[in-house]
Amino acid sequence: MKVYKIIIINALLLWSFSLTAKEYKASLFGAVSDGITLNTGSIQYAIDYISENGGGRLVFYVGRYLTGSIQLKSNVVIELKEGAVLVAAPSIYDYDGPENRNALLWAEKQDSIGVVGKGVIEGQGTLVLESIKTQRKKGYLKENIGSLCPALIYMKGCNSITIEGINLREACGNVQFYNGCTLVSISNITTVSTSVENSQGILLSECDRVNLSDSFFDTSGKELSQAGASKNLSIVNNINKDGKKIR
């Protein structure tokens, strides 16, 4: 019953949001789909701009969009259309995140945010790991590897998050990490992250009202793991590569 309620709330939220959401094409902000232009500056400017102007969707169409860490802001949803790939920058120095926790896409204390569509977030985990190892070997980085590896998505203290439909690939660290978030809806995603050891599909810590459904996981670490206790979880119809149900 509770789960049902959550679904309805989420659906309502989504519905009301999509009605009002203004659509911005990524090219408006100069994002380039050639796979070699680092778009961090343009994408971040776009997110800031959309958030400051009433919110909306930032839409990426087919192509490869190289980027370093970007910070999601309230009322901004990134939509990756089929064929659109957010390609993670190979250098570890292109990452940051809250509390020195690196992530490609992160948010802290933001409301009504999300990543949706049939596109891909490609973590280039092997390359990023190589960058970390090289820099550590040279002594330019002191932190241990685990704490440096960027997650693909890290949300901290956020409310009303929608992750829907997308393909998440080859994270250097964990694929998704939600820390102290409420109303998290993850559905219909495909996660393949096996190139770096112990890449966990979803890590939850002290979240409330999390809905994970209809998703596929092929990960080198656990598909779903929990650090701090979360409550009101609904985990429905998710499988791993061996066809096992994920709970």
Binding site: S33, D34, G35, I36, V62, G63, R64, E82, G83, V85, K118, G119, V120, G165, N167, T190
Partner: peptide
Amino acid sequence: EYEGPVED
């Protein structure tokens, strides 16, 4: 640079 679209 413009590889064929990754399919979902």
